[in-house]
Design a protein around this nucleic acid. Structure first.
Lengths: 208, 208
DNA sequence: TAGATTGTTAATCGATTAACAATC
DNA sequence: TAGATTGTTAATCGATTAACAATC
């Protein structure tokens, strides 16, 4: 029942590819074809697909639309989760208005910011004052919070979100957050990701 | 010599913590203290630190500033890499102006966009027309490209970057890119990351 | 000295890959 | 039938964790 982290990260990639390549695979697609397109090992893809769907047929593979449905069902994409975002700076606004999250089952209901200039009551999603955070989270029963503030404010915002009953935090600030054990924190550290990219690039030179 | 991917992702986290907690650890810090602060296992931190520094002393641990220097040296932060970004939409602009990358050794020299409205010659970094991409990359000898365009344009942009001699691509578009084997692609798939967060949150409910 | 800390060697764990039987 | 494909069981691989000797 419980899926591994790598699997959870690969499933949206499969999903994305399956949705984007309707013309190429109008009806069915095999693990092999998917693996080759995505540059992954066939066996791994086969095992991944077996984990989320039992509709694979020999000789045929998977029915494209069924596979999409099974992956979405597995990832619970139909069960949309509401979220709030704190920090309506450039990154925050970009995320607020990014349409891709809706497809992935996340609905960012509103943003919050201490800076009155950043507020916008009319736009969709709106950006409100921090003082409204708790009542908003409570009344909408929000469980997910996204942090896109400056690193030195992140812990304070984290504490505020926890106080509002938030259960999972997606942290874009390059700060290690301290939170109660029952609050899930996922760090999206772009600088760390970048470090990995640069190092891999350098190893390449080194190997040559 | 070659570092594992998990290690490469933890090092910037250590670095970040070490830099931010000068008052707490004015001189030395032990693997144990670092591990507890970051909620990691002591042994793992110890092994990680041993991989990048040989200056650890029994009873004392590591000298904070030396450790910072060793991690930065290991990650080659002094060797700043130049990069270009294609797609000056909200996310693109946010990344263009994010100061954290400089500290991590990435200097985004310029952005490029097909939309004349998005261009800005005066701002820093500037945003130019796509037609200038190749000459810019060639003349500045750029090896890293960042893609922040819409998914349906990502492959085209990827091809253009490859044609400009780019060797590594950091892709923020939710699209699997096809590229020559010697071009390194790192996908930063926020929707995939989100899926992992949501699933972990759900498992939690399930466990209860 | 005793205790805190290091680095290293061996054991464990989890994920990927290989091998293969089953099916259409 | 032969071949393409599936799902599953066993082997491998790599990373984490445990155990421990060495040091100040």
């Amino acid at each position: 029942m419980k899926a591994s982290k790598p699997l959870l990260r690969r499933l949206p990639v499969y999903l994305n590819y399956l949705k984007a390549h309707e013309e190429e695979y109008p009806y069915n697609i095999s693990a092999r074809q998917l693996a080759e397109a995505l540059n992954l090992r066939e066996v791994m893809v086969r095992k991944d697909l077996a984990a989320v769907s039992n509709k694979g047929c020999s000789r045929i593979g998977h029915i494209r639309v069924d596979l999409i449905a099974d992956i979405e069902a597995f990832l619970n994409y139909s069960n949309v989760t509401d979220a709030v975002l704190v920090g309506a700076g450039k990154l925050g606004l970009a995320l607020l208005e990014y349409s891709g999250f809706e497809k992935a089952g996340l609905h960012i209901l509103a943003g919050f910011d201490t800076d009155p200039v950043k507020r916008r009551n009319a736009a969709q999603p709106p950006v409100y004052s921090m003082s409204q955070l708790e009542s908003f989270c409570r009344s909408h029963n929000i469980h997910i919070g996204i942090i896109t503030v400056a690193p030195d404010q992140a812990q304070k915002v984290c504490d505020a979100l926890v106080a509002c009953g938030i259960q999972a935090i997606w942290n874009f600030a390059p700060t290690h957050l301290i939170s109660p054990d029952d609050v899930l924190i996922q760090n999206e550290d772009l600088a760390a990701s970048l470090a990995a990219l640069r190092m891999n690039l350098e190893y390449r030179y080194y190997d040559k």
